[in-house]
Design a protein around this nucleic acid. Structure first.
Lengths: 263, 263
DNA sequence: CGTACGTTTGATCTTTCTCAATAATGGTGG
DNA sequence: CCACCATTATTGAGAAAGATCAAACGTACG
């Protein structure tokens, strides 16, 4: 499946918001191929919509997870704390992404999941999704692949935090968000909205807020990024990508078509 | 299933080396429950044994993985490189662990897998394992859980590298290795052999070899660890665990029984 | 008994952190 | 619409953790 040009994708995204399950489907199809019957089976899943305030927990470390939430709108993140209370954000989730694949098959959650912004989530009964995964091999496979792609992103983050300096490290996550948001139709040549404070960014990068601020200002003054409120734009994508040492292979997206972030 | 006392486990490990598949079985059973039929099905898998020199690649970034290797003896690691050539080790594998669950269901590998020491691996045809995963739900589930536990370990490493200082960070991985090795019957109150150079340790911690050396010496002189060649021992496990801010929940092992590292 | 690799140590430099203060922004009630 | 408050962003100065460079020391192995 070739990705459609950015404008078209934005339109389909808008249309897709009419059903939360379309979003889940879109997400699974960014990594796997499903046939028409698979699609219908996913779209037929029962769910309830819920709106959560910013900073709501959807999973707490120690919980036995019972449901599977899919982010319909808004952002969320996974987080762990050290004994002395410092926080590390270990993943950021964008609209359309399932929040509970990581915990769903384990008896007790090993980390916390929180909304970053006010967010709508579709709550799908765990048993229904498991049934589908078992009865339709392609869907089970698509879920497995989504889990493996998340694991791949974790690995890249270990590399990013372990081996890149602050400037490349920040640039790298900004590139990652761009590509992931674009795949969901939420970013284009005008960049994207990143609803994170610099403190939250610091906790995802393993840095302090002060240093994140200085690093952002450096990226901006050196022309790698342009900012308007929380909107980030890349005046020269290729130059940014080189600075970030960014190669999107680890995101395991379907072969690239046209888009704002090629080249 | 209660874990047997350390001495007994060492014996069963020795016995288990008679069949590489016993090792895989033992590993899957540290996270999941299998019945007798499942066990027999795993033990009946076809495989070929192969000995690899230290630093051999079993998977290279960009490859399309074809086989599923299980580490029978020796250690291995997953590794990624930045554009300027610095290396980050993103996972370390101990005897008995499968090496290719992460890449097996993705079309193209996003990282490299290398042996750390000379190692024996059992090569299982990918199709056979997939067939088993499909036909026996408990086995498919056990593989999924193994993948999720690996992902959980990645998350803890992100936290460890992002938010702990060098001393706690090093202590943390030493604790992790202790618990994982003990679960495989390869560690007891006399500690364990860690066949890694300080340079490799540096690459797993996101530090430099010089600083790792200073940190090891500090841990030793402060009585947190005792060393004899590559053997590591903890004179006071509880004190070590506290320094490391180590909580083994993220390893998702079966409920603890007796063992050298309780308390 | 060298040679190569790994470990240890010293001196100095850089990045990032810490602490502290000031400025900007967004949202709220009047 | 405005004043106020809380949160977030920005800036400065000094401290600390960790990196870098360079050399010496050990040890295993051919």
């Amino acid at each position: 499946m070739l990705r459609a040009p950015a404008l078209f994708r934005v339109e389909t995204f808008v249309a897709a918001t009419s059903s939360p399950l379309d979003l889940l489907l879109r997400k699974l199809e960014t990594h796997s191929r499903l046939d028409e019957e698979d699609r219908q089976a996913i779209l037929a899943l029962p769910y309830t919509l819920k709106t959560l305030e910013a900073q709501s927990y959807t999973v707490r470390e120690g919980d036995a997870p019972e449901v599977c939430a899919v982010l319909v709108s808004g952002f969320a993140y996974r987080q762990k704390l050290t004994g002395d209370g410092s926080r590390q954000i270990v993943a950021v989730h964008i609209p359309g992404e399932p929040l509970d694949f990581q915990n769903l098959f384990l008896d007790v959650a090993d980390h916390n999941v929180q909304t970053l912004t006010r967010a709508e989530v579709a709550i799908i009964p765990r048993a229904e999704l498991q049934k589908l995964a078992r009865s339709r091999a392609a869907i089970g496979h698509a879920i497995l692949v989504a889990i493996l792609v998340e694991a791949s992103i974790f690995r890249e983050w270990v590399l990013n935090i372990g081996r890149r300096d602050a400037r490349s490290r920040l640039a790298h996550v900004l590139c990652e968000f761009a590509i992931r948001l674009e795949a969901q139709g939420l970013a284009d040549e005008n960049g994207y909205e990143l609803p994170m404070t610099q403190e939250q960014l610091a906790d995802t990068l393993g840095l302090t807020p002060v240093h994140v601020n200085r690093t952002i200002m450096a990226l901006e003054s050196q022309g790698f990024i342009a900012r308007d409120k929380r909107r980030i734009r890349f005046p020269d994508w290729r130059r940014m990508r080189d600075l970030a040492d960014f190669n999107q292979r680890y995101l395991h997206l379907e072969p690239q078509g046209s888009g704002a972030f090629n080249g």
